[in-house]
């Protein structure tokens, strides 16, 4: 039981680290939120599952938190992306591959 919990926590920590690395390495906001949203969602999910294995008293609360996180984190990324798009929508949609060509103007 304990080892399963620690295993999940390790997985969660790894994915959270990858999310941070992704945000650091990606060139512009849309790609950063690609990396950030996905990896951090699974990372936090795995962390919460791991904690609920370690302490079964609070497991139902943690599962509720995980469900809430599953729905709220895509919405957050959607809002960030929409704001970015609003800022330079014409540019992003007209050119077929605009983000790599003029990366420095998209921050």
């Amino acid at each position: 039981m304990q080892y399963v919990g620690w295993f999940f926590i390790l997985v969660g920590a790894t994915f959270s680290f990858l999310a941070g690395l992704g945000i650091f390495r990606m060139p512009d906001i849309l790609n950063q939120s690609q990396a950030g949203t996905k990896a951090s969602t699974l990372g936090i999910l795995a962390l919460l599952v791991g904690f609920s294995f370690l302490n079964t008293q609070v497991a139902p609360k943690l599962i509720l938190m995980a469900l809430f996180f599953l729905f709220s984190s895509p919405i957050a990324s959607y809002t960030i992306c929409k704001a970015t798009l609003r800022r330079n929508k014409a540019k992003l949609l007209l050119d077929s591959n605009p983000l790599l060509k003029e990366g420095e103007q998209n921050d």
Binding site: F15, G22, Q34, A35
Partner: peptide
């Protein structure tokens, strides 16, 4: 979700950063 994460991990770890958004 798990597939997406493995895919994203592969992209992030690859030194050349193979993206074409």
């Amino acid at each position: 979700l798990i597939k997406a994460n493995l895919n994203m991990a592969r992209i992030v770890v690859t030194p050349k950063l193979p993206i074409s958004p």
